[in-house]
C-alpha cells in the first residue's frame, strides 16, 4: 500500500468526524451561547463555560487547535514529501491567515499583538519570532530568508513603490500556492489532486486578479505576482486572464471551470466579499464532491482536510456570531454547508 492510499484510508476515518449539517442548525437554534458551547463540548472542540464565556480569541484558538490536531493525527508516522505536501496545503492555510493579519497591522504602522494561542508550534512559521520584529521590512526579509517567501519579498518591493497593501497579501497567497504546487510536484499527483489544487488556486487567482485590476495595477506586475499562484493553469489562459478586461474575464474563467464562472458571474456585481464567498463555495462543493467520489489518492485526504478547515471556520462563526448577538439567519449565510 502506498503512503497516498494509506492516508486516503485514514482520511475516511477523519471524514466521519466532520460535524453534520444539522449540528450547526441545532447550535444556531440554541437560545444562549452557553448551551451552544455545551453542545459543542461533546465534540472535539473542547470549549468550556466553567471559566466564563470564552473570548473570540479563545474560540479561534480552540477551532484552529482542533484542526491542527486532526492534521497532526493524520500524519502520525508519515514523513517525507507526502507529509510535507499535506502540511503545506492544510497548515499553510492557517499560517497564511495569521501572516496576513501580521502584515496588515505592520503595514499600517501599528504594533502587532501576538495571537494568544499556545498550540501553533506545528506551523512552519514562528509567529512569536516574527512578532518581536518591529518593522514590516524585517518581517518580510525574515519570511523570505527563513521560510522561502520569495514572492512576498517581490511584492514588498512593489508595495514600497506603489503603496498598495493588497500587493503584500496577494504576494503572501501566491507564495502559499507556490509552495503547494512545488510540494505537489514531489508526490504522486493524480489528475483529481491537480484539479483540486487548480480549482483552489484559480479561485484565489480570480479574486486577486479582479481586485488588483480594479485597483489599477498594471498587467506586468500582475504577471510577476500571480504567475506562480496557478502553476497548473495553461500558459495561454493565464496570459489571457492577465490581459483581458474585467468584462471579458468570465470567458477565461469559463475555460478553467464552469462552476467558477457561474460563481464569478453571480457574485461579482455584489462586491468582493460576495465574490470571495462564492468562489470559496465552489471549492467547498468540489471538496464535498471528492468525498462522495471516494478516490484512493491524496485528493481525498486534501479534500477531507479542506472540509475540516471549513468546519473550524463554521464553528468559529457560529460562536462568535452568538457572542456578538448576530441573528441566526445572518450567521447561517456565512457558513459553508
Amino acid at each position: 500500500m502506498s503512503i497516498e492510499t494509506y492516508l486516503a484510508v485514514k482520511a475516511r476515518g477523519l471524514k466521519l468526524r466532520l460535524l453534520p449539517r444539522e449540528f450547526y442548525h441545532t447550535m444556531l437554534e440554541t437560545p444562549t451561547l452557553e448551551e451552544s458551547i455545551k453542545l459543542l463540548s461533546r465534540t472535539e472542540y473542547r470549549l468550556t463555560v466553567e471559566r466564563g464565556v470564552p473570548s473570540p480569541d479563545e474560540i479561534r484558538c480552540a477551532t484552529l487547535r482542533t484542526f491542527i490536531n486532526r492534521v497532526e493525527e493524520l500524519l502520525i508516522g508519515i514523513n517525507g514529501a507526502v507529509a510535507d505536501f499535506v502540511r503545506s496545503y492544510s497548515l499553510g492555510r492557517v499560517e497564511m491567515e495569521l501572516l496576513k493579519e501580521l502584515i496588515r497591522v505592520l503595514s499600517a504602522g501599528h504594533k502587532y499583538e501576538l495571537f494568544p494561542c499556545p498550540n501553533l508550534s506545528s506551523l512552519r512559521v514562528s509567529l512569536r519570532l516574527l512578532s518581536t520584529l518591529s518593522s514590516l521590512e524585517d518581517v518580510v526579509q525574515e519570511l523570505g530568508r527563513l521560510y522561502d517567501y520569495k514572492i512576498l519579498v517581490t511584492a514588498y518591493n512593489l508595495y514600497r513603490d506603489i503603496g498598495e497593501e493588497a500587493l503584500l497579501e496577494c504576494g503572501l497567497e501566491a507564495d502559499y500556492y507556490d509552495h503547494c504546487w512545488n510540494a505537489a510536484n514531489k508526490v504522486h499527483a493524480t489528475r483529481r489532486l491537480k484539479e483540486l489544487l487548480l480549482i483552489d488556486s484559480s479561485s484565489r487567482w480570480i479574486y486577486w486578479l479582479v481586485l488588483l485590476k480594479t485597483r489599477g495595477i498594471r498587467a506586468k506586475i500582475l504577471n510577476q505576482l500571480l504567475r506562480h499562484m496557478v502553476k497548473g493553469l495553461d500558459e495561454d489562459l493565464f496570459r489571457w486572464g492577465i490581459k483581458s478586461p474585467l468584462e471579458e474575464l468570465h470567458i477565461v474563467i469559463g475555460f478553467i471551470s464552469r462552476a467558477l464562472e457561474k460563481a464569478y458571474r453571480s457574485s461579482f456585481p455584489r462586491g468582493f466579499l460576495a465574490l470571495e464567498r462564492e468562489l470559496g463555495k465552489v471549492l467547498y462543493s468540489y471538496a464535498s464532491h471528492l468525498l462522495r467520489l471516494r478516490p484512493i489518492d491524496l485528493s481525498y485526504t486534501l479534500a477531507c482536510l479542506l472540509l475540516h478547515y471549513f468546519e473550524a471556520n463554521n464553528v468559529y462563526r457560529v460562536l462568535v456570531g452568538k457572542i456578538a448577538e448576530i441573528p441566526p439567519e445572518i450567521i447561517r449565510q456565512t457558513l459553508y454547508l
Binding site: 473570540p56 496588515r104 466579499l273 462563526r317 456570531g321 456578538a324 445572518i330 456565512t334
Partner: peptide
C-alpha cells in the same frame, strides 16, 4: 446586517487588522 456578515466572514482579528489600515 452587512457589517455583521463582514465581521463573521473576516473574523474578529481580521476586522481588527483591517481597521489598522
Amino acid at each position: 446586517r452587512e457589517a455583521q456578515k463582514t465581521y463573521l466572514l473576516m473574523g474578529h482579528r481580521g476586522v481588527d487588522s483591517y481597521s489598522c489600515l
